[in-house]
Design a protein around this nucleic acid. Structure first.
Length: 271
DNA sequence: CGTGTGCCCTGACAGC
DNA sequence: TGCTGTCAGGGCACAC
């Protein structure tokens, strides 16, 4: 489910109910997700007050007044449920405030929860190696040109590398490459500077638009079984194998496999 | 170092 | 209230 826009929307949705609130109860329903839950998670978080929420790449951060930040990753299937009507068998972590209950539900358990000293977040290994935020000012054509220099790997795979850009996932890489007219198999080092100058604004635009779509659905998030998904977003290529290209309206969208994952593209519009 | 492969796990869906 | 095969928004360990 979650790429950067979905994580951003999740963080914003949680913030409306959690920011400034004291956590009255924290419960683990199993010992681990991808990794074991931190041994002191329940002890540290119970009774703590949330001082703010933020996002880094596809990680959500819940800061507390105990100088510790709880960091969650939603993996492939994770989501937060607010005030669920009934428990789900995949609600692995429960957090309660005086007025609300939050359940981290993740059927495939590819997600993670970590506890990190707030003043050492940048040194946390998972963060230390991340590239620039795609929506920040550090993602520039110059950065990409340097990061992709002499790389023979396909641009599609390189853009999924969180060390090059932090937060892009399969959907939005496919969509951004389509908008920029770049073939997913093109070698990263061979994408020209002008093409990168076209690509960068498209990356930012497709992510921003998706966040806006999610933002307009925040009302849904507050439903008892509030669910965060891909909203009403219409994709141009993702998952549209065989359908007509929305741009040239002549060619059929094709699906290929790269790095064990699917890529969709228009063979006419993307070279 | 860069690159390629396989695995973690459950659920949804197509086809039989 | 079938079965089996395929695929899925991510990340990482490991081999070369």
């Amino acid at each position: 489910m979650p790429e950067l826009p979905e994580v951003e929307t999740t963080v914003r949705g949680l913030a409306r109910f959690l920011d400034g609130e004291r956590l009255t109860r924290v419960v683990l329903n199993r010992p681990n997700l991808r990794r074991p839950f931190p041994a002191d998670l329940v002890q540290v978080m119970t009774g703590a007050t949330v001082t703010g929420l933020s996002r880094r790449a596809k990680y959500g951060l819940i800061h507390t007044d105990r100088d510790q930040t709880m960091i969650f990753h939603l993996g492939m299937s994770g989501r937060w449920r607010i005030d669920p009507d009934k428990p789900d068998k995949h609600d692995h972590l429960i957090v309660e405030t005086a007025d609300h209950r939050f359940a981290l539900c993740d059927p495939r358990r590819f997600g993670s929860v970590d506890l990190v000293d707030t003043d050492a977040l940048d040194q946390w290994p998972q963060f230390a190696s991340l590239g620039p935020e795609p929506l920040g000012e550090d993602l520039t054509p110059e950065h990409l040109k340097a990061a992709l220099k002499d790389r023979k790997q396909a641009i599609k795979l390189l853009l999924l590398d969180q060390r090059i850009v932090a937060g892009l996932g399969n959907i939005y890489v496919c969509e951004a490459l389509f908008r920029a007219g770049i073939h997913p198999r093109k070698a990263g080092g061979k994408v020209s500077k002008p093409k990168l100058a076209v690509l960068v604004p498209h990356i930012k635009a497709v992510l921003s638009q998706s966040i806006e779509d999610g933002g307009s659905s925040l009302r849904d998030y507050a439903r008892p079984d509030g669910e965060l998904g891909y909203f009403a977003t219409r994709f141009d290529v993702y998952g549209r194998e065989g359908e007509n290209c929305t741009r040239c309206e002549a060619s059929a969208i094709r699906r290929i496999e790269q790095g064990g994952r699917s890529s969709w593209f228009c063979p006419k519009c993307q070279r």
